[in-house]
Design a protein around this nucleic acid. Structure first.
Lengths: 124, 124
DNA sequence: GACGTATTCAATCAAATGGTTGACGACACC
DNA sequence: GGTGTCGTCAACCATTTGATTGAATACGTC
């Protein structure tokens, strides 16, 4: 699985059970048994989910006797929000530029000759 | 596929090709053909990717002659960042609370009797 | 109405995913 | 050292996913 970090992170959060695990870990570290209790799947399945979350860098695990407490790690979450926000903002900016261009074209249209053509042109 | 919106959204962005498509759509709307050009996969494969993005609510498609221009939609991106940020912040807060508690316990320890017990208690 | 372009639908396939059960490893406790 | 608890590893199974090819559909143009 030589996948890039973002793919692993997004894929990890694409599962409702794993998102729920993350939500509960946000309230405090916990072991596999405690995490598995609320679900009606086997402990092994939850262990696999935790492995996915760990490989995505979203959680880390320490050792404490035979328990392996899971701890949420903020870094990769930041990576995801940064990615999302970057392109959302880019799209928003473009939207506003387009708005401005259209407004300007309207103004031109109302004052001078009506070109009535070339909608949605690319801005370099 | 009766999946919840967040699962669909995260799953959609878990694929590098789809993330790249999103990145390019952030720079401007585009049709399937244009989007498919840079990749060495078939146009049909890209069409499928776009269907996934559309079902996730990340892009919408209009009709313009035989073309189906794709347009980035900000709403679901916000949904994702809100989810991520919520739990990241929760975890951060807990971290800071724990820090404060430990500092307080240190102070108590140095001034009064050492309890030396009850680590990692749950906060209601 | 035939033709070309842009896009999707359908059948198919290999690989990945999420789940199961059963056996094993690590550790505290008696 | 045997026993119980917590967790993982391994083998297996059904479903989903990403891709392919080939046939359709939708639309402008000639």
């Amino acid at each position: 699985m030589p996948q890039d970090p973002l793919s692993r992170a997004f894929a990890a959060l694409a599962d409702p059970t794993r998102r729920d695990i993350v939500a509960r870990l946000a309230a405090g570290d916990a072991g596999v048994g405690e995490l598995a209790a609320p679900y009606d799947v086997s402990v092994q399945a939850v262990s696999k989910h935790l492995k996915v979350l760990e490989e995505a860098g979203l959680v880390t695990r320490s050792r404490e006797a035979q328990r392996r407490p899971c701890h949420l790690e903020a870094e990769v979450f930041d990576l995801m929000t940064k990615w999302i926000e970057r392109y959302r903002r880019e799209a928003d900016d473009r939207f506003q530029r387009l708005d401005a261009v259209l407004a300007h074209m309207d103004a031109d249209e109302n004052q001078q000759q009506p070109p009535d053509d070339a909608r949605r042109g690319e801005a370099s």
